[in-house]
Amino acid sequence: MSTPANPAPAADARPTRGPARPAPYVISAILILIAIALPLIPPIYARAEPALFGIPFFYWYQMLWVLIDAGLLWICYALMTREDRRRREVVRRAADAPATGAEGQR
């Protein structure tokens, strides 16, 4: 993409975020795994009873997972954006400390 002599890649290899704490990512990974796996195990839900308003279990269970997945992802979103903000804050503070003045955030 550019010649090896080009100094540009070194400039933008500068990290945009500080090191990650594992907890938010581990929790999110578990929630995402649940959100993918449970709607995909037909033996759990391939039956008619209990019906809801005349709709067999098979149908309302899977449609319920639409809402559950949205809820799980909302939790993941909250966890990960908070961690992301914290990691960016770390980099910003580190950049301000030496006061180089060359902080090229644009």
Partner: peptide, 12 residues
């Protein structure tokens, strides 16, 4: 339905 449910964790 399960297709468009498990889609979003993957997208996320």
């Amino acid at each position: 339905v399960p297709y468009t449910v498990v889609l979003y964790p993957i997208v996320f």
